[in-house]
Amino acid sequence: MKLTVLGGRGAWPTADAACSGYLVEHGGHRLLVDPGYAVFPQLLRHLRPGDVDAVLVTHGHPDHCADLNPLLRARALADPPSPPLPLYAPAGALDAVLALDRPGMLRGAYELRAFDPETEPEFATGPFRVGTRALPHHVTNAGLRLTAGGRVLAYTGDTGPTPALAELAGAADLFLAEATYPEEVPAEDAPYLSSARQAGEHAARAGAERLLLTHVWPEADPAAALAAARRGYDGATEVARPGTVVEVGTG
């Protein structure tokens, strides 16, 4: 299983980094996870729009799904159009982004496969088994546990601290963890977002082999996030940057 980071900033993109966006590949299958702001141009560095096999979205905030729109436009307006793209997301999460275009413009460009992380804990797409956990955020958010080829990639989406993270990331080969702030989350957001320090602590509790910090606030220092995470976790740790490639399970 291979992960390619397309973006790793939270809230809005910067001049050199897109928001959340990840390409996960195994056995020739290409799964796009959380195509947030400015992810589509980064995706084009690796694939043509028609090469994406499925999209998986954790929640409906635009820094996790806004660039689904240009991806679907590129597929729908191609000559000939690309086949319908399976879209997996919590129910209602994609309503706003799918309504951006005139009615019917994207008809046939996608197949929406909504799921409920509370009641549908597992499904399959291509070679991936997708385990889901409802994690606390401002809107419904699905933590993801992707399994393929005997390897495990766990991803938080955006989440506040919860014991469910230890289960989600238990013995994962790679834990892709939201780390919006380095040390402390502002009080009003503390139930719904995490710090790099907390991400490190969760990785340690889960026994994850490797930690990749993501969703770093655009004005935050990635080096500070890395240092904060390493105070609670002594495994391999990096900050997600565009172009980062991880062969999951190879140390």
Rank of each mutant, 00 (worst) to 15 (best):
P103C: 05
H61I: 08
L98H: 13
L100Q: 14
G104V: 08
R113W: 02
G28F: 11
P121C: 04
G27E: 08
D116Q: 08
L47V: 05
H138I: 05
G60E: 02
H59Y: 01
L85H: 11
P86W: 00
L68H: 01
R73C: 10
P117T: 03
L72C: 00
H137Y: 14
E118G: 12
R75P: 06
A66I: 10
L144W: 02
R75S: 09
L77I: 10
L44C: 14
A109D: 00
R113L: 03
L47Y: 01
R73P: 01
P136Q: 05
D95A: 15
D63K: 07
E111C: 06
G143Y: 00
E122S: 14
F115D: 03
P121G: 03
A134S: 13
A114P: 12
H137T: 03
D101I: 04
H137W: 14
L43V: 01
P49T: 03
L98I: 15
G27W: 02
V57R: 01
C65A: 13
G104R: 10
A89N: 12
A89P: 12
A134M: 13
G36P: 00
H137C: 11
E111D: 15
L72S: 03
M105N: 10
P103K: 14
D116A: 10
L77S: 13
E118Y: 12
P86S: 03
E111L: 14
D67C: 06
N141E: 13
L87A: 02
P136A: 05
L112R: 15
D34T: 10
A93G: 11
L43G: 08
D67M: 05
G126E: 12
G27K: 01
R133P: 11
G92N: 05
L31T: 02
H29A: 09
E120M: 08
Q42G: 02
P70Y: 08
N69G: 09
L87E: 05
T119V: 08
V139D: 11
H61E: 14
T132N: 03
L72A: 06
L112K: 06
M105V: 13
R102I: 04
Y37R: 14
D95S: 15
V97N: 13
L85E: 14
E111H: 07
Y88P: 06
A54H: 06
A76K: 10
E122Q: 14
V39R: 01
E120N: 04
G131M: 12
Y110S: 15
L94Y: 01
H59L: 03
D63H: 14
F115M: 02
R113E: 00
A54K: 00
P84L: 07
G60D: 00
L144M: 05
A142H: 08
D51M: 15
H59M: 08
P41C: 05
M105A: 11
V39M: 05
P83M: 07
N141G: 09
T125N: 03
F123I: 07
H59S: 11
P121E: 02
P90D: 02
L31A: 09
H46M: 10
A114G: 10
L106M: 11
A109S: 15
P70G: 06
